[in-house]
Simulated scan of single mutants.
Amino acid sequence: MQTLYPQIKPHARHDLAVDKTHTLYVDESGSPEGLPVVFIHGGPGAGCDAQSRRYFDPNLYRIVTFDQRGCGRSTPHASLENNTTWDLVADLERIRKHLGIDKWVLFGGSWGSTLALAYAQTHPERVHGLILRGIFLCRPQEIEWFYQCGASRLFPDYWQDYIAPIPQDERHDLLSAFHKRLVGNDQIAQMHAAKAWSMWEGRTATLRPNPLVVDRFSEPQRALSIARIECHYFTNNAFLEPNQLIRDMAKIAHLPGVIVHGRYDVICPLDNAWELHQAWPNSELQVIRDAGHAASETGITDALVRAADLMARRMLNLSPDEA
């Protein structure tokens, strides 16, 4: 099994103002002359951390990580103003230009896979290839499955904690009920709703229970940005047209891609990855038989590191010995 590369520190940091409201945290690590790759984090609202750059060989890759609008070290925290899928696509393009990168590899999981596909379909000429995990196509049926009815039947005990902040007479539309509290002025109700929302995600992210993942999702600042921004996006169907990402796959059908997906992914069921693979002739689908949704699960980590290594060798025309 491949494990993550050792911890490295960024060699450059950028505070990039993308409009009058938002300033993004961006950093670079690895080789300045390496193959550019951008790590696109999930959520939306989760942010990057020191683990994000460890999927890539720092001798081969110029590694870019950034926190999307409203989360992580970007400011203002948990802001919903000017925060849509297309704002984030434009931000990626601003980052690319700011760093003087011609083309890069896109590496994204969960919501990061959604945003990577949206960016690639908008700017296919700027993409070498894609490595995607835990495919999320952001369609109403996927949001319904996890936040209203479906996954609830697999985790009825966790589900009760998720819906606890919502009165019985509002539970027929949980997305709207959570949204009302997450954007409201009652800060106690807001944080109660945010922790319930985020912990539901953390508890169901792994096949085997992982307290470290749950603790990460329940950290108050992270929980607030995840819950507010996710609920904002999902209430608006992620600002996508119906089935847009599958509909527009012809725009990037020529690009190489690797899809890594846990067979027992409850947050983003496997049929999402299967459907994407069917619409993408130049992709490879790797179904990890003993994993759920989280990138930290052993089989998924192994597959992602191997995929990144292989992508670099191919793009840089290296032999296995050179890599």
Rank of each mutant, 00 (worst) to 15 (best):
D15G: 09
D15K: 02
D15R: 01
A17E: 04
V18G: 04
Y25D: 02
D27Y: 07
G30W: 07
G30K: 00
E33S: 14
P36V: 14
G43P: 02
A46W: 03
R54G: 10
Y55E: 02
N59A: 14
N59D: 12
N59M: 08
V64L: 09
G72S: 06
A78F: 08
S79E: 06
S79F: 14
W86F: 12
D87M: 03
L88Y: 02
A90C: 08
K97L: 14
I101L: 15
W104C: 06
F107N: 02
G109H: 04
T114C: 08
L115M: 11
H128L: 09
H128Q: 05
G134P: 03
L137M: 03
F146W: 12
Y147L: 07
C149N: 12
D157T: 13
W159F: 09
Y162T: 12
A164T: 13
P165M: 07
P165Y: 10
P167G: 10
Q168I: 15
D169Q: 11
E170M: 11
L174P: 01
N185E: 07
D186F: 13
Q187H: 05
S198L: 00
T206M: 03
P209C: 08
P211Y: 11
V214P: 03
P220V: 15
R228Y: 13
E230H: 07
H232F: 11
T235G: 10
R247A: 15
A253C: 06
A253I: 11
I259V: 15
H277D: 13
D290S: 12
E297M: 03
T298K: 01
L304W: 06
A308C: 13
N317E: 14
P320N: 06
D321P: 03
